[in-house]
Computed example of a mutant assay.
Amino acid sequence: MISKKNYEEDDFMSTVIAQKWGNSLGIRIPKEAADRIGIDQGSEMELRVIGSENTLTLKPKKKRKSYKLDELLSQITPENRHKEIDFNREGRELI
Rank of each mutant, 00 (worst) to 15 (best):
P30R: 08
L94N: 05
P78D: 15
G38F: 00
Q41I: 02
I39L: 04
R92M: 10
E93R: 15
I85D: 02
A34I: 05
D86S: 05
R89Y: 02
L25N: 12
I50V: 09
M13S: 14
K59T: 13
E8R: 15
K20V: 02
Y67L: 10
A18V: 07
P30F: 02
G26R: 14
I85K: 09
I37R: 03
T77H: 08
N6E: 12
I85R: 00
L58E: 09
Y67C: 00
S66R: 09
G38I: 02
N23V: 04
K61P: 04
I2P: 05
R89F: 11
A18S: 12
E9I: 03
E32Q: 12
L25T: 06
R48G: 02
S66A: 07
D35Y: 12
L72Y: 08
N80P: 10
I76C: 01
D35E: 14
L25W: 10
I27A: 01
M45G: 02
G51D: 13
L47F: 08
R64S: 06
H82W: 13
G91H: 06
D10Y: 07
E44I: 03
V49Q: 05
N80L: 04
R81H: 01
G91F: 07
V16T: 06
P30W: 04
S24N: 14
E93K: 15
F12P: 07
E8A: 15
E93L: 15
K62Y: 01
K63G: 11
Q41G: 05
S3I: 12
N88T: 13
K61C: 12
R92H: 10
N6M: 01
I37F: 04
G51P: 03
A34E: 04
R36L: 05
K62W: 07
K5W: 02
I37M: 07
E84K: 00
T57M: 13
S74P: 05
T15L: 11
S74E: 09
E46L: 12
E53R: 06
R48T: 13
L69A: 13
K4Q: 11
D35K: 14
T55G: 08
N88R: 03
M1R: 13
L25D: 06
S43W: 06
L72V: 09
M45Y: 09
I29K: 01
I2D: 02
R64W: 00
D86F: 10
H82S: 15
G91T: 07
S66W: 07
W21H: 09
N6K: 01
D11I: 03
R48D: 11
E44T: 07
Q75R: 01
K63E: 15
D70N: 14
G42D: 07
R81T: 12
A18Q: 13
F12T: 08
T15V: 11
E90R: 11
N88D: 14
A18M: 15
E9F: 05
P78E: 15
R48S: 10
I17D: 03
I50Y: 11
L69E: 03
Q19G: 10
E8L: 15
N6Y: 00
L69D: 02
K59P: 00
D40P: 06
E93A: 15
K4F: 01
E79I: 04
N80Q: 09
M13H: 10
I85T: 07
T55D: 08
K59E: 00
Y67H: 01
I29N: 04
Q75I: 06
R92N: 01
T57K: 14
W21P: 03
T77Y: 01
N6D: 05
G51H: 01
E84G: 03
M13C: 14
